[in-house]
């Protein structure tokens, strides 16, 4: 790991206009990502955890400019992605790639495996057709697929094998930075372990930098080097893995760790402190700190003002008035 910043996200926001449920207003603003700043250094695995609707997937897609931003900046080695023209952006796709959650919908059902993996090579005219075929075989081998199956269609593979196809496709152009959006969440545990190993092996071999998005605390805790916790579009806590796992301070982070089922029946929590209430709708988030209605430590100030993200120790920032 080096200190060179590969990705810098500055105050990024992505809002969607949605049809409101109530009859009075006909449009509402869903602030999926609302002022997120973060840096990712070369060789790092930044884990992003949060529950559904916290904006972690939107963040991943916006960082890669797969959708336009509302405001803010995303810098890749100091270059602003959103300031790039079409040609530059196409060049940029060689460096930044994505691995998706659903191995069923992320592969085009009408293309054979060789076409799917070879598509990035074709789009960027990488090498002669013969070189491309060699490259496809090599990529399949690298992700643990036998190249002799390259004439098959995606539906003829199991979930784990499809995920390998998706990984091979992301690898094809030799990227530096890969966003893994719930990349192992749809898989069975035993297959999930295979894919996690594969992702780590590839990182060692190619020096990738990952942004690893997941709702599964155990997976993030295992794979990440640094962890960021999101709640309703905002960063609530960010720290190195060890610090976040052992010394998390934000009440929401505490609630997440408390709620996460431990795979040890002797550690069964009995009457543990469970955070009550539902995740509020991101269309009408609570005023002030978004977590205050569920927070056992909430003060009057929490209701009025959103707490800024402040550094409490080197590399450990938290957005909370109380800590």
């Amino acid at each position: 790991m080096s200190d060179t910043k590969l990705i810098e996200v500055k105050d990024l926001a992505k809002h969607f206009e949605v049809r409101a449920q109530g009859a009075r207003e006909d449009k509402a603003l869903l602030k999926a990502v609302d002022g997120v700043s973060l840096d990712i250094c070369e060789g790092e695995i930044l884990g992003i955890v949060g529950e559904s609707g916290c904006g972690k997937s939107t963040l991943g897609k916006t960082v890669l400019r797969l959708q336009e931003k509302t405001s803010g900046q995303v810098l890749y080695r100091g270059e602003d992605l959103f300031a790039m023209g079409r040609v530059d952006m196409k060049e940029m796709t060689k460096n930044i790639q994505m691995i998706f959650q659903d191995p069923y919908s992320s592969l085009n059902p009408r293309k054979k495996v060789a076409q799917i993996i070879g598509q990035p090579l074709r789009i960027h005219n990488a090498g002669t057709p013969a070189e491309q075929i060699t490259r496809i075989d090599h990529l399949m081998d690298e992700v643990g697929l036998n190249p002799k199956f390259k004439r098959r269609y995606p539906h003829q593979f199991s979930g784990g094998q499809r995920q390998r196809i998706g990984i091979a496709r992301a690898l094809a152009l030799g990227p530096e930075f890969i966003v893994c959006d719930e990349a192992v969440s749809a898989l069975d545990v035993s297959v999930q372990a295979q894919i996690l190993n594969l992702l780590l092996d590839l990182q060692v071999r190619h020096g990738f930098t990952y942004m690893f998005i997941s709702h599964d605390l155990a997976v993030v805790e295992f794979i990440a080097t640094r962890i960021l916790v999101m709640y309703l579009g905002r960063v609530v806590e960010i720290a190195s893995k060890d610090e976040l796992v052992n010394q998390h301070v934000h009440p929401y982070t505490k609630a997440l760790f408390e709620a996460f089922p431990v795979t040890d029946p002797r550690a069964r929590k009995g009457k543990k402190q469970i955070v009550m209430g539902d995740v509020p709708s991101p269309i009408h988030p609570p005023t002030g700190c978004h977590f205050h209605p569920r927070c056992p430590y909430a003060e009057p100030r929490c209701r009025e003002q959103y707490p800024p993200l402040r550094e409490i120790s080197p590399g450990h920032s938290v957005a909370c008035w109380v800590v």
């Binding site: 897609k61 890669l64 797969l66 952006m89 196409k90 060049e91 796709t93 060689k94 930044i96 790639q97 994505m98 998706f100 959650q101 659903d102 919908s105 992320s106 592969l107 085009n108 059902p109 598509q119 990035p120 789009i123 960027h124 998706g166 496709r169 094809a172 152009l173």
Partner: peptide
């Protein structure tokens, strides 16, 4: 579907 986003991420026009 994700495959459309995936292919856009690959630089498809």
């Amino acid at each position: 579907n994700d495959y459309v986003i995936a292919e856009r991420a690959l630089g498809a026009s």
